[in-house]
Amino acid sequence: MKRISILCCFVLCFLQLSAQEKGVQFQDLTFKQALDKAKAENKLVFIDCYTSWCGPCKYMLNTVFVLPEMGAFFNDQFVNVKYDMEKGEGPWLRGRFHVSSYPTFLILRSDGALQHRIVGSRPAEDFLECVKRGAKEETSQFYLDQLYRQGKLDKQQLISYRAALGDAKRNAELKQITGEEFKQLSDDERCLSRYWYIYDQEEINLEDERFAYLIAHKAEFDKQVGKEIVDKRIYDNYFERLAAIKSNVPVAELVALMKKQIASVDFEGKAEIFLSLCFVEARNNMDIDAMLDLLEERVQDLPRVFLWQTPFLDFIVEKGNKKQIERYVSLENRMLEVLDNEKLKKVVKDTFARYRSGRSDN
């Protein structure tokens, strides 16, 4: 029995080693050695920039890089190396190539010039697509960056450049590029599903001409792209903007714009967005009566991000009259009924106890 157990362990170890050999072979080389070897073998250098504490880095190493299809491509095309960005040459490489998030993957030419950057973990198929894009000079960031600066990108190259920027999560530039694509399209093309990526970006704010176009032509987008998809993009644009607004900033212009836009378009979740907008408007204007009217009628309908703020509207207690404070305090039980976090409920009870005693301090 003991011999069988030993044999099973041996077979398991052999299979694990065999699987590793089929995956990406990372070589124990210094940065200079990697460049020299790439030059001698006429290859590119692939660098995995990782840290010991990074979960997505471990996912890539243990789940993606071990796959045979990854090894087949990487080992043929690259000299593969990986460096901990907090040890050895890591900090120097981090500074040289401006690595600020993990994992980051670099594709370098043998002279040390950056050809392509990929930021973040991805499923194997998606990641391999990014790497293949970076391995070809004509679809790499380095090449397309140069053409873009020279104003020489044609329509197809603009699409390739968008993909390259997406690989590196250069979101501000991606927004700019897709904005330029939008301007190049005819009205007949702008609503087509194959160009939906131009609108489906978190970075597109409510003031962007693309969002205004989406709102104005929603019926056609519903036909071409699908109502559910279009509704979600509109809802997310509004909700993410509202949720990000801090309580101490003026909102008059934004509120006016949103009210005008929302009145002109129908989408799933419109009532919830309008309720959230009214909450933000009352909160930031410190409009006590408007806030109390809203809470008394609709507190149970507020999205969680705003619902969780309702017990901590100190301006009502600090600036309100006796009747207004009484109205606010009387809402405690209704708030507790809809809150779904026991620790928060305890904090709410303690907070309202202070309100009743005439103190709003923490």
Rank of each mutant, 00 (worst) to 15 (best):
E342R: 12
V64H: 09
C191P: 11
E203K: 04
L302Q: 10
W92T: 00
F74K: 08
R210I: 07
V79D: 00
E297L: 10
S100F: 02
Y235T: 09
L339H: 05
R122I: 05
N80R: 05
T51P: 02
W196P: 03
V299H: 12
C130V: 04
V45N: 02
D289C: 05
I47S: 01
E209G: 02
I6A: 13
Q33S: 07
L257Q: 13
L294W: 08
P103M: 13
L67R: 15
L158N: 09
Q25T: 09
C278Y: 11
S101G: 07
V317H: 04
G88K: 00
P103V: 06
E268A: 15
S100Y: 10
K183R: 15
Q184W: 06
N321L: 02
G358R: 08
V255Q: 06
L44T: 10
F267C: 09
K132G: 14
Q33E: 13
K155L: 11
I107C: 15
A40P: 02
G95S: 08
M70V: 14
P103K: 14
V299R: 14
A38H: 06
C9W: 09
Q27A: 00
R3G: 06
F78Q: 01
G55M: 07
A271G: 15
S360A: 11
G151I: 01
E253Y: 10
F14D: 02
S100N: 05
N75L: 06
Q141R: 07
L12C: 15
M85C: 02
